[in-house]
Amino acid sequence: MGIHMDDNIHAPTVASGPSSTGEPARDPAKLSMVDLMQEKQRIEEELSALSEVLGSHGVHMSTSLTTFDGFPRDDIDVAQIRTIRAKIIKLRYDHKEVMKHLETGVHAHFANLQRAQEPTSTINNTNGSVGASNSTTESSSSDTGMLSPPFAKVNSVAAGSPADQAGLRLGDTIRSFGSVNWINHERLSKVAELVQQNEGRTLIVKVSRQNEAGSLAELNLELVPRRDWGGRGLLGCHLVLL
């Protein structure tokens, strides 16, 4: 995960993690949305702690643990690192399962909101002429009902930067950044990872912006990360968590 800290390889955080206590695994299918969010956070915190331990020893998940001639390296604790890697693999699987159920729950929640709005639209439309506007109302409800909650805010935008050229503005709130949203942004680390992996490629950024009338406008912006714009970074903007 690219996290490098100064924890010792034998730091007690490894042994004291929730997955190391013998506590039975929680079945994501039986958890509420609140419990799923808590489980997601717990897993991410433990993954972060384990990754910090690997990083402190100068290794990551794909670092070779053997010498060029196939013997275990004697400059690292190979057994400990293998144990940590196994825990990380298990936690990543658990995280994927939690995310699957969490996303299913979110979609079901928004679908219920949309269905709850439809009867009102039907009651208010009592003749054919108003019925024409009914499809517009339902379309609008569908568009807004499926919007993800914002998770970040644009804190600054450099003039002439990729973010500026895409149309990002100070104060915009981010609902999704490519495939990253409020569920999986992991304290914005996934945004940075996505940007690094997509230099020169177009990313769709969904933002909310308050207009002069005080209402929110929903925009889909095309942002192309690049480093040749004359400033620092690939975006030229700064995001902060909401």
Rank of each mutant, 00 (worst) to 15 (best):
L54C: 02
I183A: 11
H109A: 14
H101Q: 13
D35I: 02
L203C: 08
V180Y: 01
T120A: 14
G128R: 07
T122M: 11
E222F: 07
S62T: 14
E45V: 09
K153Q: 07
L188W: 01
K90M: 08
H57S: 13
S156H: 02
G131Q: 05
D35N: 12
G145L: 06
W182A: 14
I89D: 15
S129T: 06
P28I: 01
R115P: 08
G2P: 09
L168S: 04
D69Y: 09
S48V: 02
D74K: 15
E193P: 00
L203E: 04
V78Y: 08
A108M: 09
G167H: 11
L219S: 04
G178I: 02
G160Q: 03
R227E: 13
E118H: 08
P119E: 04
P225V: 07
V195K: 12
H185Q: 02
S176W: 01
A25C: 12
P12W: 07
R26I: 04
G145P: 05
D74C: 06
N125P: 00
E52K: 11
A49P: 02
G131S: 07
G171E: 02
L234R: 08
K40P: 01
L102M: 14
A11E: 15
Q117Y: 05
P150S: 10
T67C: 10
A159Y: 01
L113M: 13
D75F: 04
M146F: 12
S141A: 13
A11Q: 12
D228I: 04
L203D: 08
W229Y: 11
P150M: 00
S32N: 11
H238P: 00
W182R: 01
H57W: 04
N181Q: 02
I81P: 07
N211F: 03
P162Q: 07
E118C: 03
S121W: 10
A163V: 06
E52F: 05
D27P: 02
L203F: 03
P162C: 06
A86G: 08
A79H: 09
S140F: 03
